[in-house]
Simulated assay, not measured.
Amino acid sequence: MGEDGASASASEPISTVTGGNKPVHRFLRGQPRSIGVVLSMMGVGLFLFGIPMTVHTDIMTSADVFSPFWLGILFCVCGVLYILSERSPSKKIITASFALSIISTIGVVSACMDFIKSMVIIERQDEYTHNNITEDDYVYLRQHYSAVVAMECVFLCHGLIGGVLLIIMTCFARAALRSSNTQAVVVMRNLPSAE
């Protein structure tokens, strides 16, 4: 009976399910560490370049509404989350990355509008001051304004590039958090030997 009981249990199918419900590997395909480093560096650049922009009291810049500062902080936090998510991927950290990426993308749209608005205001102020000052003063002022507009363009480029990276990582995070129905069921049977 012991042999018959052992052969009966050996011939029962053994099934195991492989593959998780949340395929984290989809997020890792986006190279979150590399994008995290790029976003962190862009965030530090935005923050540091925003500091000298605050000294321009005669014209309104985006630094007056702190756009480079809070956008730089958002980029840095997103970058750190992406770096951490590649080191130890989990559902919680990918969910946090996903949520912060969406918030940062909305922030990029708002900040880019601030950057464009500042460039337009500087150009209009340049036209207004041209009629009220001498030609030598206008040349000096024009050089000053062009440097400020160039910094606003740098901020705008950083914002747009960071926004594209955030949208890409949002798509990867969404794919990783979406439930997967592609589980593989492995069925193994121990067939009795021909002996």
Rank of each mutant, 00 (worst) to 15 (best):
A6N: 13
R26G: 07
I168L: 07
V38W: 01
P13Y: 08
A194C: 08
L71H: 02
A176Y: 01
V108E: 00
S180R: 10
G163V: 00
A10M: 13
V148Y: 03
T182K: 11
G162E: 03
F49N: 09
G2N: 12
S67I: 02
S62P: 02
H158F: 12
F66D: 04
V120G: 03
V149T: 10
R178F: 12
A175R: 06
S7R: 13
P13H: 07
T129N: 11
R26D: 09
G72V: 02
T129F: 08
Q143P: 03
V139P: 00
V37N: 05
E135S: 14
A99R: 12
K91I: 13
D137L: 12
I59V: 15
S62F: 01
C76D: 07
S193Y: 07
H158C: 11
V38I: 13
M1R: 11
T129A: 10
L74R: 04
V44I: 13
S15N: 12
V65R: 05
S40A: 11
S34M: 11
P52H: 05
I167G: 01
S110L: 13
S193D: 13
E123L: 06
S104E: 05
K117A: 14
G43Y: 00
F49V: 09
H144K: 15
S110E: 14
L74D: 05
F98V: 01
L141I: 15
S9E: 15
C171H: 01
E152C: 06
R124W: 08
L74N: 05
G19W: 06
L81W: 02
V148S: 03
Y145L: 12
L84R: 06
H56M: 11
G19A: 09
K117W: 06
S97T: 09
L165S: 00
E195W: 06
V139E: 14
I14D: 11
V108H: 00
I94D: 01
K117H: 12
P13M: 08
V139G: 05
I106M: 12
A111V: 05
I94H: 00
A6S: 13
R26T: 08
K22L: 13
S101F: 04
V80M: 14
Q143F: 10
F49M: 13
A99P: 01
T170S: 09
C171S: 08
S11Y: 06
G45P: 00
A96S: 12
P68I: 06
F75P: 00
S11P: 03
